[in-house]
Simulated scan of single mutants.
Amino acid sequence: MAIEVHPATVLADVAAVVGPKRADANVCWCLSYRLTSSKENLALRGPARGERVAELVRQSPPPGVLAYDGDEVVGWAGVHPRADTSFATNRKIPHVDDLDVWSVWCIRVRPGHRKQGISHHLLTGAVDFARSNGAPAIEGYPVDNDGAKVDLTMAYVGTRGLFERAGFRKAADTDSVLNGFPRVLMRLDLR
Rank of each mutant, 00 (worst) to 15 (best):
E4K: 05
E4D: 11
E4C: 05
V5E: 10
H6P: 07
A8V: 09
T9H: 10
L11A: 06
V14Y: 04
A15L: 07
G19W: 15
P20W: 03
K21S: 14
A25W: 07
A25P: 15
W29I: 06
L31V: 02
L31T: 00
S32K: 07
Y33R: 08
S38V: 12
K39G: 02
E40R: 12
N41W: 15
L42Q: 14
A43G: 04
R45N: 05
R49Y: 05
R49E: 11
G50P: 14
E51T: 14
V53L: 12
V53I: 13
A54M: 09
A54G: 04
V57M: 00
R58A: 13
P63E: 03
G64W: 07
D69W: 10
E72I: 12
E72T: 08
V73H: 08
G75M: 08
P81W: 14
A83L: 11
F87Q: 09
F87M: 10
K92L: 15
I93S: 03
D97L: 03
L99E: 03
D100Y: 06
V101S: 15
V104F: 09
W105K: 02
W105P: 00
C106Y: 08
R108D: 09
R108E: 09
V109K: 02
V109E: 02
P111C: 01
P111A: 02
G112R: 10
H113A: 02
K115S: 09
K115I: 08
Q116G: 11
Q116K: 07
I118C: 08
I118G: 00
S119G: 11
S119K: 08
S119C: 14
H120E: 15
H121P: 07
L123W: 04
A126C: 07
V127W: 10
N133I: 08
N133V: 01
A135F: 00
I138W: 06
E139N: 01
G140V: 00
D144H: 00
N145W: 00
K149H: 10
V150K: 01
D151G: 11
L152I: 11
Y156Q: 06
G158I: 01
R160M: 02
R160Y: 01
L162G: 02
L162R: 00
F163C: 03
E164H: 15
R165V: 02
R165Y: 05
F168L: 08
R169Q: 13
A171C: 13
D173A: 11
T174W: 00
T174H: 00
V177S: 07
L178K: 05
N179E: 15
P182V: 05
P182I: 06
P182T: 02
R183L: 05
V184S: 12
V184P: 04
L185F: 06
L185R: 06
L188D: 08
L190Y: 14
R191W: 10
